Computed example of a mutant assay.
Amino acid sequence: MFELNFLFFAVAIPAVIFAGISKGGFGSGVAFASSSILALILDPGQALALMLPILMVIDVATLGPYWKRWNWPDSRLLMLGAIPGVALGAWLYKATDADLLRLLIGGISVGFVIWHVGKTQGWVRGFANRLPPPAGLFAGVVAGFTSFVSHAGGPPAAVYLLSQRLSKTEFQASTVLVFWVINAAKFVPYAYLGMFTWHTALADLLLTPFAILGAWLGVRAHWMMSERLFFGIAYVLLTITGSKLIWDALV
């Protein structure tokens, strides 16, 4: 069991605020950096369990500002695909150990940064045409799976949504809706697997105000802050934390 000491809050409070800003204003693409950061000081399962209620609070806090601004057909495809993805994630979690979870979280973190750099440098080309509906279902499966094992469902969902040429606000609203459903779907298997404890519940209660603050800042930043600056910071965090988790898992 982890201690609710100065080190915990010094790491957890910025991580939770960062998750709120990401989900509230810039999609869920890099919100999983918070889980990667927490996994540096907590068991990976504890980090995931701690973050899920926080993410659900942020989802509720950000639904209102983006209500009905989403693209329903694309969002529906992702949500339909996400359900079997969550089930697959639950099965894998039950059959794995902490080091494999660290490797998965770290690998997804670093892989996402490499994918972004490759796209920015022209090594990876974007999609010339909108991806077809079956691709949306597949992206939903991947998002559900990666969301369950590392809260990292944002990247696969973003790949599909960005291919649909949505506006910034339509993309953001669709992301909020999709992950509100995915995170709600994850709650029951997380509870069934015994990931929640009274200790994580107390920590969540103490961190909730910071989650709401982050969500509020994220909605404000959606209209004001440079996306390039925000994501630049996020990619640095993902690279450092992801690399550390991979090292810990292998060594």
Rank of each mutant, 00 (worst) to 15 (best):
D59Y: 03
V188Y: 13
L206S: 10
N5G: 11
A135R: 13
I114F: 12
M1W: 03
V188G: 11
L229E: 10
P134C: 10
A158L: 04
T208C: 14
A191H: 13
Q172P: 06
P84W: 08
T120V: 15
D99C: 00
G126P: 02
L52A: 08
W198N: 13
H199F: 03
G107C: 11
I246N: 00
S150Q: 12
A49V: 11
G29N: 01
P14E: 00
A31Y: 06
F145N: 05
H116P: 09
F127Q: 14
V86Q: 00
S167M: 02
A173R: 04
A184H: 11
G136Q: 07
A39V: 00
I114M: 13
I37L: 14
I41N: 02
N5A: 10
F171T: 00
W67N: 04
E3V: 14
F32A: 13
A215D: 01
F231S: 05
G45I: 15
P156V: 02
A31D: 00
W91A: 07
G106R: 00
V16T: 05
H116W: 14
G242Y: 05
A90I: 05
D204A: 15
L50Y: 10
L38D: 01
D99H: 13
I37P: 03
W67G: 03
T175P: 04
R165V: 11
N183T: 12
F6R: 08
P84L: 09
F6L: 14
L104F: 13
F9I: 00
M225R: 10
Y235R: 03
P44V: 07
L77S: 10
V176D: 08
Q172T: 00
K186V: 09
R130A: 15
G153S: 01
L237V: 15
L166K: 02
L40K: 04
L229G: 02
E170P: 05
L131Y: 13
A82Q: 03
T120H: 11
F127A: 08
D74F: 14
